[in-house]
């Protein structure tokens, strides 16, 4: 530590002293494990995946080259388009629920308390494995013995098949995952709110601005960059919905929850159409890439107003 203070003045702000030949060989040692893993389980499978998408393959025989047949099939496959539609519906529902609930909770915490215990408790559902929360909610929403139907009946309402009726299944799945993710979203937004200087609120309070108005006029606009970040993260995350559907509805009733991830999984491992599943997966890569690109462009317009 003493040497640190000694040399600080000599090289302050500069990069590590330049070496004549660079650190090529050392860097290779540092990077070796990661490069091996990346080549074997990211690059190589990406190439193979692209190749499979041009073949007809059932996992057992040799893949047979079929050119662009899989892509031609995909364009005319109503289930594929349905899966995209259903996924988009899910994404809008679950991200909407998370952000509205997360904003509300974060704002309440921001105004009321700094309790670490409260924050830790709120984040517990996020730590529960997806499979567990899906099972748990499947039980809570069970048509016969489930707690929620018990509640409905005791309020004088009718039993609902939350996960078995085509209209309710997707909102139910979205709510299940929103339950899991809201605590996480809340903490991200809360962290963002802590960055807003309190003088702004004090000035607003002196001017007689009410709490609700402060939220919409101060908190929300200044939170924009973090809101955008949360939006991107939860959008990409939600596109990968699989666990909850695989446990609760298995794509049903009548394709109402057959999201794209689950559809790809079924094609590959239930129908053993590996080639077609790869074509679906590669299309998803392109779609998500396009979405990310659009989001990046939009994000650029939302730099912090605090900076």
């Amino acid at each position: 530590m003493t040497t640190a203070t000694l040399t600080k003045t000599e090289t302050a702000g500069a990069a590590l002293p330049r070496r004549r030949r660079g650190d090529g060989r050392v860097a290779l040692a540092f990077l070796a494990p990661v490069l091996i893993g990346f080549a074997a389980f990211y690059v190589y499978p990406a190439v193979r995946g692209a190749w499979y998408s041009l073949t007809d393959w059932n996992l057992l025989s040799e893949p047979g080259f079929v050119g662009l047949d899989n892509y031609a099939e995909l364009v005319g496959d109503p289930l594929f388009w349905n899966s995209l539609k259903v996924t988009a519906y899910y994404v809008v529902l679950t991200v909407g629920m998370q952000i509205v609930a997360g904003l509300g909770l974060a704002a309440l915490m921001h105004r009321l308390t700094r309790s670490l215990v409260l924050r830790s408790l709120l984040v517990v559902p996020w730590l529960v494995p997806n499979v567990t929360s899906a099972l748990l909610w499947m039980w809570l929403l069970d048509a016969n013995l489930g707690f929620f139907n018990h509640l409905l009946v005791s309020l004088g309402l009718d039993n609902q098949g939350f996960l078995t009726s085509p209209g309710l299944a997707m909102p139910s799945v979205a709510a299940i995952n929103a339950w899991g993710a809201t605590g996480y979203t809340t903490l991200l937004l809360y962290a963002g709110m802590l960055l807003v200087p309190r003088q702004i609120y004090e000035a607003a309070a002196l001017d007689g601005t009410g709490e609700v108005r402060q939220f919409f006029r101060i908190t929300l606009p200044l939170l924009r960059p973090i809101l955008a970040f949360v939006l991107v993260v939860s959008l990409i995350d939600s596109f990968q919905l699989f666990d909850a559907v695989a446990v609760t509805t298995k794509g049903g009733p009548v394709d109402a929850t057959r999201v794209v991830y689950f559809y790809i999984y079924e094609e590959a491992f239930t129908h053993f159409k590996m080639g077609y599943a790869s074509a679906l997966a590669l299309s998803l890569v392109l779609i998500l890439g396009l979405l990310t690109f659009v989001q990046m462009r939009l994000l650029r317009a939302s730099r912090s107003d605090l900076a």
């Binding site: 389980f41 990211y42 190589y44 499978p45 990406a46 193979r48 995946g49 499979y52 596109f239 990968q240 991830y261 790809i264 999984y265 590959a268 590996m274 599943a277 790869s278 997966a281 590669l282 998803l284 890569v285 998500l288």
Partner: peptide
Amino acid sequence: VPPIFTLLP
């Protein structure tokens, strides 16, 4: 890249 793309291969 969504993980499912590399998961299949």
